[in-house]
Design a protein around this nucleic acid. Sequence first.
DNA 1: TTGTATGCGTTATCAT
DNA 2: ATGATAACGCATACAA
Lengths: 336, 336
Amino acid sequence: MVTITDIAKACGYSRATVSKALNGAPDVKKETIERIRECARELGYHPNAAARALKVGRSYNLGVIFSDSTGVGLTHEYFSRIFESIKAEAERLGYDITFISQNLGTMSMDYLEHTRYRSCDGVVIASADFHDPAIIRLGESKIPTVTLDYTFDSRTAILSDNIRGMDTLVRYVYGKGHRRIAFIHGEMTSVTQKRLASFKKSCMELGIRIPPEYIREAVYHDPRSSGLETRALLELPEQPTCIFYPDDFSYIGGMNELERQGIQVPSQISTVGYDGIHLSEVLRPRLTTYRQNAERMGAEAARLLIEEIEHPDTWLPQQITVEGTLLEGGTVADID
Amino acid sequence: MVTITDIAKACGYSRATVSKALNGAPDVKKETIERIRECARELGYHPNAAARALKVGRSYNLGVIFSDSTGVGLTHEYFSRIFESIKAEAERLGYDITFISQNLGTMSMDYLEHTRYRSCDGVVIASADFHDPAIIRLGESKIPTVTLDYTFDSRTAILSDNIRGMDTLVRYVYGKGHRRIAFIHGEMTSVTQKRLASFKKSCMELGIRIPPEYIREAVYHDPRSSGLETRALLELPEQPTCIFYPDDFSYIGGMNELERQGIQVPSQISTVGYDGIHLSEVLRPRLTTYRQNAERMGAEAARLLIEEIEHPDTWLPQQITVEGTLLEGGTVADID
DNA sequence: TTGTATGCGTTATCAT
DNA sequence: ATGATAACGCATACAA
């Protein structure tokens, strides 16, 4: 490994001057800066992040937390898209990404300790159990933190606009003439609560009454449970004309059940998903859904986190809501 | 931040003794070890990885490279599963994961430089252009390296058993009575070459002749192109009875095209995928496919990399082939 | 069994 | 404009 000392020896300056030159200090002659940099290039010098972190107390390293009980993790496309965009934005701004977890080898560390262990300058909590004391501890620490789809007091949060997302979908299917709309939602999280409340509110505003048996709970990302709830809906004396699914992937379960019963989509029943993952666009008919702007959410999370890290004095916590877009597929029939 | 100096002051020992005690050195009295550790716990001490890395030249940090030109990255389930298992195994063994890329902020670094910059003890090259000079440079460096689905000379590689995978699938559909088998494969990579050669060889061994127009090139993970090739196959004077797709996700394109033409799977035509992603199991009928054991591949990659890092003296490069399993779905009809 | 001294690669302070 | 020196937190060779 070639160090600053090697450069100093090679070009006859002191280590101090070399360091300054490489960092473009104002009190070094331009000419020497050039010479030293040239020399560094020739020797193939690159700084050592650990040494710099030790000295300066900044690691240019961001922690990210993607921890979910279900174990889908990054195999969930929504999260992998968020991750990819966090990574891209962080790299653009000169930061690396380290995954933060608990229980590293034999040492027992919680999230905060792990973050300190790696000297992360900040952490994006992208997916976690926000009631976990270890997550709360991190959120309450001095370490800059940005959460996704959840808000800690006095911290920056990036929120997917679930209210507007549901509202958009409800009004869209209403516009197509649907009045008997069922909603299979995911397990009760704060995100689910928002979507459900928004669903009910929009329906009410539009003057349509949703019978309680039209509201059903399934599990996110689990086609099986959505398939079962679909069956239950089809057994009702008065079937819905349109079914909302917890997410696009879950819809596969509904799709299969409908197909099994010989029910055509959308001519006999209409369907709506949520997320806008790639899959929704390659199904035929395309699934009508609401595409969460995961790319923008990840990028904003990284950007704001780095902003807080680099300008702690002028920083203020923000709650940013990122809107998605309606993906108009072919699964909602016009039944006017 | 609480350091060993703080502990030393707090419990009245020297920094050296504290350090030794925390690392369980044999020349410290058990009693003292206990006392010091107790004290460390009380103060909430945790080591600083950067300082340790600087001192001992080991970072307990693994680099991973997932870089593909197409930009699907971790949104491809196969890769996200590999990543999750690399991560899990690395964590189990006490290592963190850092993503290695090129162009970090304004500095221009290639993969090798980035790896050195972060003092990574080794790198898993999970997905990359293996003809990229920067990747080759890394593969030829002193840094421990493990590749997936590609072999560098004298380096450890984890290989998915594409030969056996294709062979298994071919023999399975042959056993169901199919003789006119078409293969839509992905773009020409070393993986594709293996699958194609294995496909042809197995067919030959079974005594079935595959007309050249049954072999078609599409693009991995791209339903559209597989849809187009499906259409082309259906226009042939003699249609195949079974179509192999590049991967499960691409199959969606074929599935849609078949449905559009009113062709039932599997009663009128049989289909086969590759990968065994979650999607294949939730479609109805289930897609018959070959599940690559991504979990095992990732875990082995991490395990062997760490083995090389920790025991460089006894280490030998290995090429490990990881077998997958046939997922018998319902898309291949018995036409005997 | 414990402590002293040193250095890993870097940057920052203060002289020169 | 440049250099000597110390310090970041830690681990180790060696001395006591």
